[in-house]
Design a protein around this nucleic acid. Structure first.
Lengths: 210, 210
DNA sequence: TAGGATATTCATCACTGGATGAATTAGCTT
DNA sequence: AAGCTAATTCATCCAGTGATGAATATCCTA
């Protein structure tokens, strides 16, 4: 705030503070709705540093996206389930656990991917996102379809869409609607939701073998 | 554009043009991201008319919301299904048919309901939206639960959430993901989606009686 | 036909937002 | 030490934004 100009002593975390503030604010409001001044204020830093470190507001946004999503992708890649039921459950659990630290991330992704594909942020996100999709869908493919556990009369693509719908919608839905479903986002409620979804998916997508 | 000041001859549709432009633009971009000048330009009208007819940009937004949502609610109220399967299908069909004319509406609703509940637009939407929810959920309640067709071991609230997830997510998801599911929004694809969802829900939520 | 009500454009104001160059201070190298 | 580079703040610029009052033209009623 009332810091004097000039380089401060010792190590500084201005750059990281900006990333954190950006992650926080862009998770809740649109790119246009967030001002550089607000970002700088939350980071406790002068707005001109945005230009210094990232070139522009858009640059900060993009860098934040990169640094937020890459760990997500890395964590996803480290998992390989075995049986079909485990697959549903593990994929969902992993997903919710990854999203827990930044609750706005799904909506942020949704917003960016609804934007103009020419945008640089779209392109960045698309790259990472398609990899995430590929990994997740590959999982389902191996476990369910190749292993012959899925009902043959279903369109695999629609089945995947159903999976994703049940998984993601609760994170995208407005709070009003979530409250209406008796859910909070506590660990216990996440467990209930996962169990419910797994149950639904087993009955609806898998061959009933017993 | 280059129209002269003063009242034009004959009937005018300036007000309606503004509503239409607002519906169009607010469906795609945020409230903050849409400028009054852009709205006026699309409507082919001077921006000062926004003040004249609606008091402010927010006023236009709210009025547009009202005039868009009230017919939706009216149409929903006119339907009463009988059997459970018909209920799933009719509710979904009705919903998709209502949304078809304005494809951005679900996301618009999502955005508003994620905003600060103090906002006037939130309050407007909340009123109408809760009524829509009540009607739809009442439907499910009567047809499924009271009639004893639903599995008793399910939490009804989670079951409703599943229903809504399958219904709404495809309309909220980014185009990239929809394409990935092999869907367009053609009538034929809507039919496929509805049939698939009904199948899923029947297997997952209903008692298997035969 | 006179005069008020209605519907429209125009010019402008105050404000906000992003960008930018200059000034300032600290660290590092030789 | 001297001087170059890195990291900050500050003051300001300019474009765009919502709002607003005044001017203008048409419609309607008495």
């Amino acid at each position: 705030m009332t810091a004097t100009p000039g380089r401060p002593r010792g190590e500084s975390d201005a750059r990281q503070s900006l990333i954190v503030a950006a992650r926080h604010q862009f998770a809740q409001r649109t790119f246009e709705a967030v001002s550089t001044r607000a970002l700088a204020a939350e980071a406790g830093v002068d707005a001109a540093l945005i230009r210094y470190y990232f070139g522009s507001k858009a640059g900060l946004f993009e860098q934040m996206l990169r640094e937020t999503l890459e760990p997500v992708l890395a964590r996803l890649k480290g998992k390989v389930p075995t049986r079909a039921q485990d697959g549903f459950e593990m994929l969902m659990r992993t997903y919710y656990r990854i999203m827990a630290p930044n609750p706005g991330l799904p909506r942020l992704i949704q917003r960016v991917l609804h934007d103009d594909p020419q945008t640089e942020s779209y392109q960045i996100l698309q790259g990472i996102f398609e990899e995430i999709l590929t990994v997740s869908m590959g999982w389902l493919q191996t476990m369910l379809i190749d292993a012959g556990h899925m009902r043959e009369d279903l369109d695999p693509k629609l089945a995947r869409l159903s999976f994703v719908s049940l998984l993601v919608f609760p994170l995208l839905a407005p709070p009003l609607m979530i409250k209406n479903s008796g859910l909070s986002m506590s660990d216990a409620d996440i467990d209930r939701l996962v169990a419910h979804n797994v149950d639904i998916l087993q009955r609806a997508l898998l061959r009933q073998t017993e």
